[in-house]
Computed example of a mutant assay.
Amino acid sequence: MSQSESKVERTPAEWITLSISLFILAIIISLVGYIWINEKNQPPIISVNKKQTIRKVNGQFYVPFEVVNSGGETAESVQIIATLKVSSQVEETGEQQIDFLSGGEKEEGAFVFSQNPQSGELNIRVASYKLP
């Protein structure tokens, strides 16, 4: 038997190292497959909800709100606009901008008005956003 035909036996340390490496590789491949299958390719779905409690402090009315991105992608520069109409005329407006809103994330804020929002019609909406 020549040297080229001799069979080299693996040591237990080599088998253990090979097994651990294959196990780690299988975990990585499984995670990539799981993310690929469950990935949401939805654009940002942004909604704004007005909270129930309006606070009055020093003659100003604070209207809290919550913005939620229930979509799959991230939105940047989310612009929220509030309009207060009294007797069918726009009396006050306000703007808020949220720099970054990832999928499933919530942000809170408040609009400040000098007139009581309960005396008119308050409309809070998402005006725009951009994709990163």
Rank of each mutant, 00 (worst) to 15 (best):
S2F: 06
Q3R: 12
E5F: 10
E5V: 10
E5W: 06
E5G: 11
S6H: 07
P12V: 05
A13S: 13
W15N: 13
I16M: 08
T17P: 00
L18R: 12
F23C: 14
F23P: 00
I24L: 15
L25Y: 06
I27G: 04
I28G: 12
L31H: 06
G33I: 06
Y34C: 05
I35A: 13
I35G: 08
W36L: 11
I37D: 08
I37E: 09
I37F: 10
N38V: 05
N38A: 09
N41L: 10
Q42K: 12
I46C: 04
I46V: 11
S47G: 14
K50C: 07
Q52W: 04
T53N: 10
R55N: 15
V57C: 00
G59P: 01
V63I: 06
N69A: 08
E73T: 11
E73C: 04
T74K: 11
A75M: 03
A75R: 02
S77G: 07
I80Y: 01
A82C: 04
A82P: 02
K85M: 05
V86Q: 11
V86S: 03
V86C: 01
S87H: 10
S88I: 00
S88A: 09
T93K: 09
Q97Y: 06
F100K: 15
G103N: 12
E105C: 00
E107M: 10
E108T: 15
F111I: 03
F113V: 04
Q115V: 12
S119M: 09
S119I: 07
E121Q: 15
E121C: 01
A127V: 02
S128V: 01
S128M: 00
Y129L: 08
Y129D: 05
L131Q: 06
P132Q: 02
